[in-house]
Protein backbone atom coordinates (compact mmCIF):
# COMPACT_ATOMS: atom_id res chain seq x y z
CA UNK A 1 0.00 0.00 0.00
CA UNK A 2 0.95 3.65 -0.22
CA UNK A 3 2.32 4.99 3.05
CA UNK A 4 2.78 8.51 4.30
CA UNK A 5 3.83 10.33 7.43
CA UNK A 6 2.40 13.51 8.84
CA UNK A 7 4.31 16.68 8.13
CA UNK A 8 5.80 18.61 11.06
CA UNK A 9 3.08 20.58 12.78
CA UNK A 10 4.81 23.93 12.34
CA UNK A 11 4.96 23.46 8.59
CA UNK A 12 1.25 22.69 8.43
CA UNK A 13 0.42 25.65 10.67
CA UNK A 14 2.50 27.98 8.53
CA UNK A 15 0.64 26.94 5.36
CA UNK A 16 -2.72 28.02 6.73
CA UNK A 17 -1.73 30.97 8.92
CA UNK A 18 -3.64 33.51 6.80
CA UNK A 19 -6.91 31.57 6.63
CA UNK A 20 -9.82 31.64 9.05
CA UNK A 21 -11.80 28.67 7.70
CA UNK A 22 -9.98 25.48 6.77
CA UNK A 23 -11.23 22.00 5.90
CA UNK A 24 -9.08 19.07 7.01
CA UNK A 25 -9.71 16.26 4.56
CA UNK A 26 -8.68 12.70 5.37
CA UNK A 27 -8.56 9.67 3.14
CA UNK A 28 -10.03 6.38 4.28
CA UNK A 29 -7.82 3.94 2.40
CA UNK A 30 -4.01 3.60 2.36
CA UNK A 31 -3.12 6.52 4.62
CA UNK A 32 -5.79 5.44 7.10
CA UNK A 33 -4.33 1.95 7.32
CA UNK A 34 -0.81 3.31 7.83
CA UNK A 35 -2.05 5.66 10.57
CA UNK A 36 -1.15 8.90 8.80
CA UNK A 37 -4.28 10.47 7.34
CA UNK A 38 -7.47 8.63 8.23
CA UNK A 39 -10.38 9.83 10.33
CA UNK A 40 -8.49 9.51 13.60
CA UNK A 41 -5.47 11.47 12.39
CA UNK A 42 -7.77 14.13 10.91
CA UNK A 43 -9.34 14.66 14.33
CA UNK A 44 -5.96 14.88 16.03
CA UNK A 45 -4.62 17.44 13.57
CA UNK A 46 -7.82 19.40 13.83
CA UNK A 47 -7.56 19.56 17.60
CA UNK A 48 -3.91 20.57 17.49
CA UNK A 49 -4.60 23.36 15.00
CA UNK A 50 -7.54 24.60 17.00
CA UNK A 51 -5.49 24.81 20.21
CA UNK A 52 -2.47 26.39 18.55
CA UNK A 53 -4.49 29.09 16.86
CA UNK A 54 -6.34 29.91 20.09
CA UNK A 55 -3.00 30.36 21.80
CA UNK A 56 -2.01 32.71 18.99
CA UNK A 57 -5.22 34.71 19.46
CA UNK A 58 -6.00 33.93 15.87
CA UNK A 59 -8.89 31.47 16.10
CA UNK A 60 -9.46 29.08 13.25
CA UNK A 61 -12.75 27.64 12.17
CA UNK A 62 -12.20 24.11 10.97
CA UNK A 63 -14.23 21.36 9.50
CA UNK A 64 -13.26 17.74 9.05
CA UNK A 65 -14.22 15.12 6.54
CA UNK A 66 -12.76 11.78 5.61
CA UNK A 67 -13.76 10.25 2.32
CA UNK A 68 -13.15 6.71 1.15
CA UNK A 69 -10.49 7.63 -1.44
CA UNK A 70 -9.27 11.04 -2.52
CA UNK A 71 -7.72 9.51 -5.65
CA UNK A 72 -11.11 8.45 -6.99
CA UNK A 73 -13.49 10.91 -8.64
CA UNK A 74 -16.50 8.91 -7.49
CA UNK A 75 -15.76 9.73 -3.85
CA UNK A 76 -14.65 13.32 -4.45
CA UNK A 77 -18.11 14.27 -5.58
CA UNK A 78 -19.18 14.06 -1.98
CA UNK A 79 -17.01 17.07 -1.21
CA UNK A 80 -18.53 19.41 -3.79
CA UNK A 81 -21.07 20.91 -1.42
CA UNK A 82 -18.75 20.90 1.58
CA UNK A 83 -15.66 22.75 0.37
CA UNK A 84 -17.40 25.92 -0.72
CA UNK A 85 -17.65 26.99 2.92
CA UNK A 86 -13.86 27.00 3.34
CA UNK A 87 -10.94 29.22 2.29
CA UNK A 88 -8.44 26.36 2.08
CA UNK A 89 -8.15 22.59 2.37
CA UNK A 90 -5.54 20.57 4.23
CA UNK A 91 -5.39 17.15 2.65
CA UNK A 92 -4.10 14.17 4.58
CA UNK A 93 -4.16 11.88 1.54
CA UNK A 94 -1.13 10.65 -0.39
CA UNK A 95 0.34 12.84 -3.13
CA UNK A 96 -2.09 11.40 -5.65
CA UNK A 97 -5.12 12.26 -3.54
CA UNK A 98 -3.87 15.75 -2.74
CA UNK A 99 -3.42 16.52 -6.42
CA UNK A 100 -6.76 15.05 -7.35
CA UNK A 101 -8.44 17.19 -4.73
CA UNK A 102 -6.63 20.31 -5.96
CA UNK A 103 -7.69 19.52 -9.51
CA UNK A 104 -11.32 19.12 -8.61
CA UNK A 105 -11.43 22.42 -6.71
CA UNK A 106 -9.09 24.66 -8.68
CA UNK A 107 -10.38 27.81 -6.99
CA UNK A 108 -9.41 26.69 -3.48
CA UNK A 109 -5.82 26.32 -2.23
CA UNK A 110 -5.07 22.73 -1.19
CA UNK A 111 -2.12 22.03 1.13
CA UNK A 112 -0.45 18.72 2.02
CA UNK A 113 -0.54 17.67 5.66
CA UNK A 114 1.48 14.50 5.02
CA UNK A 115 4.60 13.47 3.11
CA UNK A 116 4.09 10.41 0.93
CA UNK A 117 6.97 8.02 1.50
CA UNK A 118 6.40 5.11 -0.81
CA UNK A 119 4.87 1.73 -1.42
CA UNK A 120 5.44 -0.39 1.61
CA UNK A 121 4.61 -3.59 3.36
CA UNK A 122 2.88 -3.60 6.73
CA UNK A 123 5.36 -5.39 9.01
CA UNK A 124 3.64 -4.61 12.29
CA UNK A 125 1.23 -1.99 13.56
CA UNK A 126 2.88 1.31 12.78
CA UNK A 127 5.88 -0.30 11.05
CA UNK A 128 6.17 -0.14 7.28
CA UNK A 129 9.00 -1.07 4.96
CA UNK A 130 9.35 0.15 1.39
CA UNK A 131 9.32 -2.67 -1.12
CA UNK A 132 8.60 -1.16 -4.53
CA UNK A 133 9.65 1.97 -6.44
CA UNK A 134 7.25 1.33 -9.35
CA UNK A 135 10.15 1.43 -11.81
CA UNK A 136 7.94 -0.04 -14.50
CA UNK A 137 10.29 -2.89 -15.44
CA UNK A 138 10.01 -5.54 -12.76
CA UNK A 139 13.06 -7.77 -12.29
CA UNK A 140 11.75 -9.76 -9.33
CA UNK A 141 11.59 -12.87 -11.53
CA UNK A 142 15.36 -12.74 -11.89
CA UNK A 143 16.22 -11.70 -8.36
CA UNK A 144 14.36 -14.24 -6.29
CA UNK A 145 11.50 -11.92 -5.38
CA UNK A 146 13.78 -9.30 -3.76
CA UNK A 147 13.85 -5.86 -5.38
CA UNK A 148 17.35 -4.45 -5.98
CA UNK A 149 15.93 -1.15 -7.22
CA UNK A 150 14.25 -0.50 -3.88
CA UNK A 151 16.33 -2.44 -1.38
CA UNK A 152 19.85 -1.82 -2.70
CA UNK A 153 20.90 1.68 -1.64
CA UNK A 154 22.61 2.10 -5.01
CA UNK A 155 19.87 0.39 -6.99
CA UNK A 156 22.44 -1.91 -8.59
CA UNK A 157 21.31 -4.43 -11.18
CA UNK A 158 24.56 -6.40 -10.97
CA UNK A 159 25.33 -6.43 -7.28
CA UNK A 160 26.48 -6.82 -4.63
CA UNK A 161 28.97 -3.95 -4.51
CA UNK A 162 32.12 -4.16 -2.41
CA UNK A 163 30.47 -2.59 0.62
CA UNK A 164 28.56 -5.62 1.86
CA UNK A 165 29.28 -5.94 5.55
CA UNK A 166 28.30 -9.16 7.31
CA UNK A 167 25.26 -9.38 5.09
CA UNK A 168 24.34 -5.74 5.64
CA UNK A 169 24.52 -2.64 3.48
CA UNK A 170 27.43 -0.24 3.81
CA UNK A 171 25.02 2.57 4.66
CA UNK A 172 23.63 1.01 7.82
CA UNK A 173 24.21 -2.10 9.91
CA UNK A 174 20.46 -2.45 10.30
CA UNK A 175 19.84 -2.43 6.56
CA UNK A 176 20.23 -5.87 5.00
CA UNK A 177 22.19 -5.97 1.72
CA UNK A 178 19.60 -6.66 -0.97
CA UNK A 179 22.12 -8.52 -3.12
CA UNK A 180 23.29 -10.66 -0.24
CA UNK A 181 19.68 -11.72 0.26
CA UNK A 182 19.18 -12.20 -3.46
CA UNK A 183 22.27 -14.43 -3.58
CA UNK A 184 21.11 -16.49 -0.62
CA UNK A 185 17.61 -17.00 -1.92
CA UNK A 186 18.70 -17.91 -5.44
CA UNK A 187 21.36 -20.25 -4.04
CA UNK A 188 18.69 -21.99 -1.94
CA UNK A 189 16.51 -22.36 -5.01
CA UNK A 190 19.37 -23.47 -7.25
CA UNK A 191 18.80 -20.46 -9.51
CA UNK A 192 22.13 -18.58 -9.31
CA UNK A 193 22.44 -18.81 -13.08
CA UNK A 194 19.81 -16.01 -13.11
CA UNK A 195 22.41 -13.52 -11.94
CA UNK A 196 25.51 -14.98 -13.57
CA UNK A 197 24.40 -13.24 -16.75
CA UNK A 198 24.96 -9.49 -16.96
CA UNK A 199 21.84 -7.39 -16.64
CA UNK A 200 22.27 -4.75 -19.33
CA UNK A 201 21.47 -1.08 -18.60
CA UNK A 202 17.76 -0.57 -18.10
CA UNK A 203 15.64 2.05 -19.78
CA UNK A 204 14.18 4.10 -16.96
CA UNK A 205 10.44 4.22 -17.43
CA UNK A 206 9.75 6.66 -14.64
CA UNK A 207 11.33 9.77 -16.15
CA UNK A 208 8.17 11.22 -17.64
CA UNK A 209 4.64 11.29 -16.20
CA UNK A 210 3.18 7.89 -16.88
CA UNK A 211 -0.34 7.25 -18.08
CA UNK A 212 -1.61 3.69 -18.03
CA UNK A 213 -4.35 2.44 -20.31
CA UNK A 214 -5.05 -1.26 -19.93
CA UNK A 215 -5.56 -3.34 -23.06
CA UNK A 216 -9.11 -3.09 -24.32
CA UNK A 217 -9.69 0.30 -22.70
CA UNK A 218 -9.29 3.80 -23.99
CA UNK A 219 -9.08 7.39 -22.86
CA UNK A 220 -12.57 8.92 -22.39
CA UNK A 221 -13.52 11.07 -25.38
CA UNK A 222 -13.91 14.28 -23.38
CA UNK A 223 -10.25 14.16 -22.32
CA UNK A 224 -8.85 13.00 -25.65
Amino acid sequence: MIVAKRKPFDEIKEYIKDYKKVLVAGCGTCVAVCLAGGEKEVDILNTELDMARRLDNNPLETGTITIERQCDVEYLEGLDDVVKDYEAILSMACGVGIQFLAERFPGIPVYPAVDTTGMSANLAVGLYEERCRSCGECVLGLTGGICPVTMCAKGLYNGPCGGTNNGNCEIDDDQPCAWFKIYERLATQGRLDNILKIKEPVGWNDQIPRTLIQPGYMKPEKDA
Binding site: K154, G155, Y157, N158, G159, E200
Partner: peptide
Protein backbone atom coordinates in the same frame (compact mmCIF):
# COMPACT_ATOMS: atom_id res chain seq x y z
CA UNK B 1 22.74 9.29 -6.11
CA UNK B 2 22.57 8.78 -9.85
CA UNK B 3 23.42 5.09 -10.38
CA UNK B 4 21.84 5.28 -13.84
CA UNK B 5 24.09 2.36 -14.74
CA UNK B 6 26.25 0.22 -12.44
CA UNK B 7 29.96 -0.54 -12.60
CA UNK B 8 29.54 -3.69 -14.69
CA UNK B 9 27.30 -1.86 -17.14
Amino acid sequence: GVFDIDSIQ
